Amino acid sequence: MNRELLNKIDNSITSILWISVTEFHNTQNYFEEFNYLMSGILEKKQENLTGLYQTDSFNRPLSIALIKKDTNQSALAAAESSLAIINKESNSKVLIVHENIEDNLKTKFEKKYKGCEFLEFSPTKEDSND
């Protein structure tokens, strides 16, 4: 399991946006971590592994949105329907997880969704800064 990712998900995180340009599957990076957080719900899904999932983590509600971004759309556009639901919660703290799919995602999301606080986890970017 990716401990760096799991350490970012503390009791202040209310939602996670897992954005990918490929179909979601059980051998993909982060699947094991998110399946663990969702108490095994993801591994029970055989097909169409996308959408918004909700569970409790640290005795608080946690939403995880699996968002497949098409090549001709922005991450903001791909996440819009999930964020419409997530953004209804006040003081949302959202972790954006991706593998370097788009630059400045945190800034772009903060500019559009002013009611939420965004954090970003992208190991490709972090590894390149070493």
Rank of each mutant, 00 (worst) to 15 (best):
G51N: 06
G51Q: 02
G51P: 02
G51V: 03
G51I: 02
L52T: 07
L52Q: 05
L52E: 05
L52D: 04
Y53L: 04
Y53I: 02
Q54P: 00
Q54H: 02
T55L: 00
T55W: 00
T55E: 04
D56G: 03
D56R: 02
D56L: 06
S57M: 03
F58D: 14
F58H: 14
F58W: 10
N59I: 01
N59R: 00
N59K: 06
N59S: 14
R60P: 12
L62H: 07
L62C: 11
S63Y: 03
S63Q: 12
S63W: 04
I64F: 07
A65Y: 00
A65I: 01
A65W: 00
A65L: 01
L66K: 07
L66G: 04
L66Y: 03
L66A: 08
I67E: 08
I67H: 03
I67D: 10
K68D: 11
K68A: 06
K68R: 07
K68P: 05
K69T: 10
K69I: 09
K69P: 03
D70E: 11
T71N: 12
T71M: 08
T71G: 09
N72D: 15
N72Y: 01
Q73L: 10
Q73W: 02
S74F: 01
A75V: 09
A75Y: 01
L76C: 11
L76D: 08
L76I: 15
A77P: 04
A77S: 13
A78E: 13
A78F: 07
A78T: 08
A78R: 04
A78K: 02
A79T: 09
A79I: 06
A79R: 04
A79N: 06
A79K: 02
E80W: 06
E80F: 06
S82R: 00
L83F: 13
A84V: 15
A84Q: 15
A84H: 13
A84L: 14
I85H: 15
I85P: 15
I85W: 11
I85A: 15
I86T: 11
I86Q: 09
